[in-house]
Every structure is written in structure tokens, then in C-alpha cells.
Amino acid sequence: MSKEWPLWEIFIRGQHGLSHRHVGSLHAPNAEMAIKNARDVYTRRNEGVSIWVVEANNISASSPSEKGPLYEPSESKIYRHPTFFDIPDEVGHM
């Protein structure tokens, strides 16, 4: 059995002005081929103007079990949202 090609995660900028978004993954021997394959697989209907490829094992991710400790601090800080403050109607749009 020969060696499997590494897995790449594919990010595509859909339109000028937007950020790259994860669209899926594919196997390829190297970055150059990953981009070519991503072009063929993920932009067959004008879905993109730019492609990023990242080898999957180079991605570090937060762990699902840390969901609590990671995001809880922001949940309690509701004053970070503009709706926390009551502004009188007379003041006009703010």
C-alpha cells in the first residue's frame, strides 16, 4: 500500500472584499496541486476569486470540552453590546 496524499483544508474568497471561508478539504501531494484540485472541485461555478490551502495537520483548534471556560467570560459581559445602554429617543440616532 502506498502512502496516502496529505489532507488539505481549502479556503475560498467568494467575491472581492470578502474574507476567505472554509469550503471543504481534499487530498493532494503538495500545495501547488492542492490549489489546482481546489480550483477544479470548489470553483466550478464561479464560486471564488482566491484560494488558500492549508495542510490539515498544521491547523490548531480549540477543544470542544473547553467551550465553557473559553467563552463564558464573554457571556457575562453584556455591556460589550450597544443594546446594553438606553439612549433617549430625543438624542436621535446613535
Binding site: 502506498s2 496524499w5 501531494p29 496541486m33
Partner: peptide, 16 residues
């Protein structure tokens, strides 16, 4: 297709 998969992999490893 085996020789193509192996060949491209070998090439990629050599370049790396």
C-alpha cells in the same frame, strides 16, 4: 493510477 499517486508523492517529498 498507483504510479501517478506514488510519483507525485515522491516528487513532493523530494522537493520538501
Amino acid at each position: 493510477g498507483a504510479w501517478v499517486r506514488d510519483g507525485l508523492m515522491a516528487h513532493a517529498e523530494k522537493k520538501r
